[in-house]
């Protein structure tokens, strides 16, 4: 089955044959539905309807969208000197030290007030502004990492599962090896080697983070591979690549999506953990975990001292609410798509 030569031959037959155009022109979603008696497209539609009825998942989705929009519109964004996003929800720049220039009466760790709704941090900066802008780091890293790892994992798992045999054996041993390391440990080492920074963090969580998707997709592929429609497509001379990407991969999507939505939360916690350990972004950046690290010492005050809870509660709550929402969305998708086996086994990343 893994012999390329024979596949190529089949491919050639296909070109001169009758099936290829039809296969190619179809919608990716629908090309297998005919053969699988319409059940799967129904699965997506039913899933969508079911998800809409799931109030907690919808609520969580709203939270995530609001947080993402808030981060995006927090401060203007410039690309090469051109303002692409002029809005500014956050009243201050995250680096502005309020008592210098803006308002000399402000002191470090001033409590929340009308003017500074989440209070002031230990350097005299507006926490509300920092929290909004800080969402950019966590959210964007979370989505970018999951996008990269899920895509790569999909390809990796599809290839491994489809070809089977020695290829599969080798590819899965690699995955097993990666699984021997907790994700956070690997990320720590990568950041230690490369230094902190935005893209370093993305790399730290992406470099090995795809393994889970790879294994999942491979399992799905093994299940699907023997299905009639796949066998039929192969018998009709569809090329390997086309079989994998048009027939098998889409079928592996539901569990992949569930895992991805749950993983965003893990990555966000991981990024925050690195920030908290002082190994993530620049120590004055507004990333949520880094902010927690900066105010960590305030939790233990002197006798009778008031803890500036706002400096710890808000960034921590931001991480918590975002991750919780992502998990609720993941659970919602899981229920909706019935991809039950992926709802478990979490925790390896955080």
């Amino acid at each position: 089955m893994t012999d390329r030569h024979t596949h190529d031959e089949r491919g050639r037959i296909r070109i001169s044959g009758f099936d290829s155009d039809r296969v190619r022109d179809r919608e990716p979603m629908s090309d297998w539905t005919d053969e699988s008696s319409g059940e799967t497209v129904g699965r997506w539609r039913r899933g969508f309807r079911k998800f809409k009825r799931n109030r907690s998942a919808i609520g969580a989705l709203v939270v995530v969208v609001v947080m993402a929009l808030a981060a995006f519109f927090a401060r203007p964004i410039e690309v090469f000197g051109v303002v692409v996003q002029p809005f500014s929800l956050a009243p201050y720049d995250p680096t502005t030290i309020l008592y210098l220039g803006v308002d000399p009466s402000v002191n470090v760790y001033d409590p929340p007030s009308w003017q500074y709704p989440m209070g002031v941090d230990g350097s005299g900066r507006d926490l509300f502004s920092r929290l909004l802008v800080g969402g950019r780091y966590s959210l964007s890293i979370g989505f970018i990492v999951v996008g990269l790892t899920a895509s790569f994992g999909l390809i990796y798992g599809s290839i491994s599962g489809y070809y089977g045999g020695n290829v599969d054996e080798l590819m899965m041993r690699i995955v097993d090896t990666i699984f021997a390391f907790p994700g956070l440990i690997l990320a720590l080492i990568i950041v230690a080697i490369l230094g902190g920074g935005y893209w370093q963090l993305v790399l730290a969580f992406s470099l090995f983070g795809w393994a889970g998707y790879g294994r999942l997709v491979r399992g799905e592929v093994l299940k699907i591979k023997e299905n009639e429609y796949v066998l039929a497509a192969k018998a009709l001379g569809a090329r390997d690549r086309s079989v994998v990407f048009r027939h098998i991969a889409p079928n592996a999507m539901p569990p992949l999506i569930v895992l991805a939505s749950l993983n965003i939360g893990s990555v966000v916690i991981g990024v925050a953990a690195l920030g908290f350990l002082g190994l993530g972004l620049d120590p004055s950046s507004a990333e949520w975990g880094t902010m927690l690290n900066a105010t960590r010492s305030t939790l233990i005050q002197g006798p009778g001292g008031q803890i500036p809870w706002w400096a710890t509660v808000y960034p921590g709550a931001a991480i918590f609410i975002f991750v919780m929402s992502m998990n609720m969305i993941g659970d919602g998708i899981n229920d909706a798509l019935d991809a039950q086996q992926t709802g478990v086994g979490r925790g390896g990343e955080d």
Partner: peptide, 13 residues
């Protein structure tokens, strides 16, 4: 101590 090898997290503003 901290591993930030000097790269600024892309704090654009």
């Amino acid at each position: 101590s901290d591993g930030g090898d000097g790269s600024d997290g892309g704090d654009g503003s």
